[in-house]
């Protein structure tokens, strides 16, 4: 499953349309298709964390899944306006904690991000404020990323969480038409990221459940057998002829667990290099 978390409907609208996502009934505003869920977190790290945790739990997120947090961000540098950044460090202002999603080199410029629980406005002594907190020349700020990371990092591997931000303002509220354009640009990047992050589909290993039964296997024996079969599959060691022979010779099915243990030892002896 691909999970996208965005703060506001205005940010998400182009993506909802591009992916043909349909609204899902429920307290959290979610839109989904067969492999993607886009959730609106609202603003602020606490609500973002609550929504993220709830959605990942509801959809039973697993480590092959992908999470993207995309949205608008503030910056101090006018040159950044409209530019899209990949975030390699998230600093939570309230807790003074840092989070590091794993990043690889890409064509998207990287930046650090500070997550605030309050809006970034032009009335603040912003330069002093941001530079004091992160001690870096240039950083972005938002109101959700640290909450999303904190809620998701125990379920998803760090390289499967992507944080993409477009600089929408320098502390002043931008015009609606500009925001709309930024959202469309961000949508393109998110779509590209979704494509790039596809994992190859792996086939599950075939099971030998009948063999486990025929060995009268205990829990430990089952574990040992599965390990042996998994190894043989990786090492391309043919197991079927030996199993067939054991059936033909009447050694399988085993009459009891003790006999099953002996057969398991035969499998170990004959199959392992």
């Amino acid at each position: 499953m691909r999970f996208i978390f965005m703060a506001l409907q205005k940010e998400a609208a182009p993506l909802i349309q591009a992916l043909n996502l349909k609204q899902v009934d429920g307290a959290i505003r979610c839109f989904q298709n067969e492999d993607t869920v886009l959730s609106l977190t609202g603003t602020g790290p606490l609500t973002a964390a609550a929504v993220t945790a709830s959605v990942l739990e509801r959809y039973q997120a697993k480590e092959t899944d992908l999470l993207i947090n995309a949205g608008w961000a503030g910056s101090l540098q006018s040159a950044h306006l409209g530019q899209i950044f990949r975030i390699h460090r998230i600093h939570d202002y309230a807790s003074n904690r840092d989070y590091y999603p794993d990043v690889s080199l890409s064509s998207i410029t990287e930046a650090s991000l500070i997550t605030l629980a309050f809006p970034f406005t032009s009335s603040m002594d912003r330069t002093l404020f941001l530079n004091t907190v992160l001690k870096e020349a240039s950083v972005l700020c938002d109101m959700e990323a640290s909450g999303i990371f904190e809620a998701a990092h125990s379920r998803l591997p760090l390289h499967r969480m992507k944080f993409l931000k477009i600089v929408s303002d320098l502390g002043e509220k931008p015009e609606e038409t500009v925001l709309s354009k930024y959202s469309s640009n961000l949508c393109e990047t998110v779509l590209h990221e979704l494509e790039e992050s596809e994992l190859p589909v792996t086939q599950p290993n075939s099971s030998f459940e009948q063999l486990e039964v025929d060995l009268c296997a205990s829990v430990t024996m089952r574990r040992q057998l599965r390990q042996l079969l998994h190894y043989c599959s990786l090492a391309e060691i043919e197991i079927t002829p030996l199993i067939q022979r054991l059936y033909e010779e009447g050694n399988l099915p085993a009459s009891d667990r003790a006999k099953g243990k002996q057969i398991l030892e035969v499998l170990y002896e004959e199959l392992l290099p």
Binding site: Y100, S104, H153, L156, P157, L158
Partner: peptide, 20 residues
């Protein structure tokens, strides 16, 4: 990427050795 302590990055939970 500036960090406080190397363990902040090195000891993070849920890192993928294959990716890294």
């Amino acid at each position: 990427i500036p960090i406080e302590r190397y363990t902040d990055v090195f000891n993070r939970p849920n890192q993928s050795l294959a990716f890294q």
